[in-house]
């Protein structure tokens, strides 16, 4: 079936019926974008591959929980993927990256593991975040890449909650071009 053969509504219906061809289409269409999100959080390729599989299995099992009125399918998958990737780093007791850790560490880890050119791209977003001024970088690093709640960020950075909110919004506005 051609990729254009499904509208989003048709795809969601077929996924809810657990039809194999719908999952094949979903995987082929979205694996690259979701894998990219995982690799932003997890440097190890093997672990990232396992998480990618678990993400699609979780989508299969939880597709009934997807509520079309709350947003697009991709948005739901994106949040699920990032949460699963962050959980994985916690479960595996990976060293929690301190907010001061240099982005170059990620680059070198990844380059050692895999010199494939595509793997240089996936750190793009994190690299962009780390180019922001420190007060923006810190809140986004903790929030987006490490899954900290706003209250936790306030505690870690010893700044008021209101400041966290303002910095997050300003940081994301600066990054808008990267996300969109």
């Amino acid at each position: 079936m051609q990729s254009s053969a499904y509208t989003e509504k048709e795809l969601v219906n077929a996924l809810k019926q657990h039809r194999n061809e719908a999952y094949r289409h979903l995987y082929m269409q979205y694996r690259g974008a979701l894998y990219n999100i995982i690799l932003q959080v997890i440097a190890d390729t093997e672990t990232a591959n396992d998480v990618l599989q678990e993400v699609f299995v979780t989508i299969w099992k939880n597709i009934d929980k997807y509520d079309e009125s709350k947003g697009r399918l991709f948005t739901w998958m994106l949040k699920l993927t990032r949460n699963m990737a962050i959980n994985q780093t916690r479960v595996k007791n990976f060293k929690v990256h301190s907010k001061n850790e240099d982005i170059n560490n990620y680059v070198s880890i990844i380059e050692q593991k895999n010199s494939d050119q595509t793997h240089v791209n996936h750190i793009g977003l994190r690299q962009q975040v780390h180019k922001l001024r420190p007060e923006y970088k810190d809140v986004l690093e903790l929030s987006y890449f490490q899954g900290f709640k706003q209250e936790e960020i306030a505690e870690v950075l010893k700044i008021p909650l209101g400041t966290v909110k303002t910095r997050l919004r300003n940081a994301i506005v600066e990054l808008r071009r990267e996300f969109v």
Binding site: Y30, R31, G32, A33, Y35, N36, I37, N121, G124
Partner: peptide, 17 residues
């Protein structure tokens, strides 16, 4: 609009396993 733009953008930036 944002959701749709973001999806398009992230599909273009895919990294394949």
């Amino acid at each position: 609009r944002y959701e749709s733009d973001m999806e398009k953008n992230m599909l273009q930036k895919g990294v394949f396993p």
